[in-house]
């Protein structure tokens, strides 16, 4: 386990949000703590990626900057990475390159 000041690695943009934004790159094994929750980072995450502020149930709205950015397509654990594998647009599908792992 790496030891690192991970409290300042994530940012809450709006009180209504249920996601946090990574503002310092995180590596696999880093421990992230926020509001009493704690989790180990599964895979490297670059600046701008999102973590769940708290548990988000399948079908729930994902809220960032105080506004809905889509819907959870599966249950999301606290401080888990929130991206295309668990979050879908209410408008149009987002296209990615094949094989991308979003790092």
């Amino acid at each position: 386990m790496r030891s690192k000041d991970t409290a300042s690695s994530v940012l809450l943009l709006d009180d209504a949000d249920n996601v946090l934004v990574v503002i310092k790159a995180l590596e696999a094994g880093d421990i992230v703590r926020y509001e009493g929750e704690q989790a180990s980072v599964a895979a490297p995450l670059g600046i701008g990626h999102k973590l769940a502020r708290r548990a988000i149930g399948k079908g729930a709205a994902v809220v960032k900057l105080g506004m809905q950015i889509g819907v959870a397509t599966q249950d999301i654990e606290p401080l888990a990475h929130v991206h295309s594998h668990c979050l879908a647009s209410l408008y149009t599908a987002s296209h990615q390159r094949d094989g991308d792992n979003n790092d």
Binding site: V22, G46, G48, G70, H83, S94, Q96
Partner: peptide, 24 residues
């Protein structure tokens, strides 16, 4: 759509999330 692979690499997941950023 106005959503490119580079946007997802940078951590954006949906068009409305990208929009919110631009809207700011």
């Amino acid at each position: 759509g106005s959503f490119a692979p580079g946007n997802a690499d940078g951590g954006l997941t949906t068009i409305e999330e990208k929009s919110l950023g631009a809207y700011a």
